[in-house]
Design a protein around this nucleic acid. Structure first.
Lengths: 251, 251
DNA sequence: CGAGTCTTTGATGCATATCAAGCTTAGTGG
DNA sequence: CCACTAAGCTTGATATGCATCAAAGACTCG
């Protein structure tokens, strides 16, 4: 188990978190130092498809260092709904109220680190590290907003609108991480999984993606996807004055 | 403007909040005192139907003292989706990230009080008032869980299941508040509004409620509704090992 | 080269939306 | 007390978006 500060050329585990926080508010040198120093335990790797047990008792929190994670629930008859995605830089917490909680699945091979220290650092010590706290606050707010958007998508948008809307959201998140540019983004999701996010059948998901491709809005392929026409997508997603700009501003 | 502690026989504004927190974890005498002392500003009343402006800049928080509130969004073409309901005892915060946020509407006549002091008290001062903080933590966790349940309802349940599921959830919330007993609960929602929560058309909402009535599960009427068969509703809602017990345990 | 996992396509059916109208209730003013 | 109105509830007819079923291509990997 080596300390994060030891890491030189190899990618730092906290890099996505640092970039995401910085995209919300300037964090400063000592903010960055604080982030790095609060992740000291050994990273943990898990294969694609693994179910990740979140211990509700310990109020466990983990930072996603790489890979994609889905939070959701499985119904008894096999229906599955993904409630949200966690990307590198995101922190997942055990909702930990009672019984059957949300489940957590690895959609790709993932690397995670314990984030309990980070979590408590941000909730406890009042005044210190104020700029960092502000960035964190905005980041959590954005997360709540994403949940709300997911509800609106599922409740009132049709398949075509839903898909456009989700793709824009994922694009915006990756722009913050620095891993998307000009509409090209990393999308390691099978159509099956996309369908379970959007509350659609896999067949209809496929047809909807074809429709977007025919309209030259999206070039979808598993792994790498290009949003060819961002303004067109915004229009397709029916995003007028609803839930903030999904086209990223320059930071 | 009189202090909360002055109030004698008339109902205390913080009563619902106190009951709800106590239903999550014991709060103790000094916890209760802390709650009461942190609401000092004048309550504000608003008529049914009012849009409540939430100032995103000031990170504004308000406690709902009485009445029902809906958070949601309006699409340009008139479609509306309600993301969540706020009942007495709930605290609403301005999501306050960027532009067009969620809107907030009063579904009934409401009374609210500024909750900024309460909010900051619970996020800032570390160790003190630990039992209160624990209750608050669980309460917020329950809120996140409700969001997740809303996503699952809209994504993967049909109209009949959705309705049963939502009614159970509202029942559970009111049991915590002490305002529901044996399935009888206060429901000041028109079918129109219910439809906008569940992502259905008003017509189909009506037919679904009739179906529940025919099956002797729910006796719905605006204002007062009786869940006649809680176990039957649980079955109808398809709640097997998904998202925790909605039938309230004795506290 | 075979086996599994994904994607694509076509055919059919159902759940829910939409449209249109009548009905019920409560409130309002003459 | 009785029109009159407006909001909500109810019902029927029709349309459609999406699910489901089934099977056939593509791809990937050992």
């Amino acid at each position: 188990m080596k300390n994060q500060s030891d890491i030189g050329l190899e990618a730092r585990l906290t890099a996505p978190l640092e970039r995401m926080l910085a995209s919300f508010a300037p964090v400063g040198i000592e903010g960055t130092a604080l982030i790095r120093s609060s992740f000291t335990s050994a990273p943990q790797q898990q294969p694609s498809g693994a179910a990740i047990p979140m211990d509700p008792e310990r109020n466990q929190a983990r930072l996603v260092a790489s890979g994609w994670i889905a939070r959701g629930a499985m119904l008894n008859d096999g229906r599955r709904q993904i409630v949200g995605l966690s990307l590198p830089g995101d922190v997942i917490v055990a909702s930990g109220s009672v019984d059957a909680d949300l489940q957590v699945w690895a959609l790709t091979e993932i690397v995670t680190v314990d984030a309990t220290a980070f979590w408590t650092m941000l909730s406890e010590p009042g005044a210190l590290a104020s700029p960092l706290k502000e960035a964190w606050r905005r980041c959590r707010t954005a997360e709540r907003l994403r949940m709300a958007r997911q509800v609106i998508r599922l409740g009132r948008l049709n398949a075509y609108e839903r898909t456009a809307h989700l793709l824009l959201e994922l694009h915006e998140r990756q722009v913050r991480l620095g891993s998307a540019r000009n509409g090209a983004l990393h999308l390691p999701l099978t159509q099956d999984v996309l369908a379970d996010i959007l509350g659609l059948s896999a067949v209809h998901m496929n047809r909807t993606l074809q429709q977007l491709r025919r309209n030259v809005l999206v070039d979808y392929r598993t792994g790498r996807t290009v949003l060819q026409d961002l303004p067109g997508l915004v229009q397709a997603a029916n995003l007028s004055a609803v839930c903030g700009p999904l086209i990223p501003a320059p930071f």
